[in-house]
């Protein structure tokens, strides 16, 4: 099927093209999902507007104590960037298990969000890191919490000509962790994944706990019950076990070729407990200077 290729030289031109070309026109960034869906005949792609060469949108830079990441930052860059590894280890971990090296050289952070797969690896991390997404549209820029962009399986609240330009991680998340269970170690879509982030107050009590799961609902799922339950508590194995139970209960997975719903609920619990334990170790290490 014919495909018209467009390479705009600015975001403005990209938005204009998308508005003119309508429904069958898609923004193309890494292409690691769009092009596969097209090759399989699952998606009609009459035209693409290639965003992948827009300048400056792949930068990873400091933002206060946190980070500002361009939407075109590749998974490989997130995996290897020293600041990401220190300030948001969960994000580096998630980026590292997206596809093989080839896919990680192409796939972008903005694409992973816009694609809205319930099994996306970086999206639960962005939820657990309380990330904001900067979106540019014909009517200007807006900055929204990542959760507000997710509308269901493959669906976002992005308007037709809107483009994700940046992701902002407002606070450092040294006490964060990401774990993924697949049927094999590499090149695998998550059966379940879990991302957590912990912050402690001066007394060593949990000031904020954030927890999100992937592949257990129609979109990446924040486990608000567990977050509220942990707040103000002292971190302990018992507390993390209780949070894991809440994560299991909040999960609404399906059964499919990869796993049964029961097994996914079990994984939600196991991964939550392990990720909280790992995040806590990292936080202690970051605070005391003693490696985890």
């Amino acid at each position: 099927m014919p495909l018209n290729f467009h390479r705009p030289s600015s975001l403005r031109e990209a938005m204009d093209l998308k508005q003119d070309l309508g429904e069958a026109c898609h923004f193309l960034a890494g292409g690691t999902d769009l092009m596969i869906q097209r090759n399989r005949g699952r998606k009609i792609v009459g035209a693409v507007v290639d965003l992948s060469r827009l300048r400056g949108l792949d930068r990873i830079e400091p933002l206060g104590d946190g980070l500002r990441i361009g939407a075109l930052a590749r998974m490989r860059a997130l995996e290897t960037d020293e600041r990401v590894r220190i300030l948001a280890p969960a994000l580096a971990e998630a980026a590292r298990v997206v596809g093989g090296a080839q896919v990680r050289h192409m796939a972008t952070l903005g694409g992973n969000i816009a694609n809205a797969s319930p099994a996306a690896d970086t999206v639960p991390v962005l939820l657990a890191l309380a990330a904001f997404v900067v979106v540019l549209g014909p009517n200007g820029e807006r900055r929204v919490p990542i959760a507000e962009l997710l509308a269901g399986r493959g669906r976002t609240t992005l308007q037709a000509a809107e483009i994700i330009t940046h992701v902002e991680l407002p606070r450092p998340a040294r006490g964060s962790a990401f774990l993924k269970a697949g049927r094999r170690k590499a090149m695998e879509i998550a059966v379940v994944n879990a991302a957590v982030s912990l912050e402690l107050d001066a007394k060593g009590l949990i000031h904020a706990a954030r927890l999100a799961l992937g592949a257990v609902a129609d979109r990446s799922l924040v486990v608000a019950d567990a977050e509220a339950m942990m707040r103000g508590q002292a971190p302990s194995p018992e507390l993390f076990k209780a949070a894991a139970t809440l994560a299991r209960d909040a999960s609404r997975p399906i059964s499919d070729v990869r796993a049964s719903a029961d097994y996914r609920r079990h994984l939600a619990s196991v991964l939550t407990e392990r990720a909280l334990t790992l995040a806590h170790k990292r936080l202690v290490a970051a605070t005391t200077g003693i490696p985890a």
């Binding site: 495909l3 290729f5 390479r7 193309l28 292409g31 690691t32 092009m35 596969i36 090759n39 693409v48 290639d50 992948s52 060469r53 080839q102 896919v103 192409m106």
Partner: peptide, 9 residues
């Protein structure tokens, strides 16, 4: 992966 890259990209 050259199978999912467009030549014009």
């Amino acid at each position: 992966n050259s199978c999912i890259l467009l030549a014009h990209q």
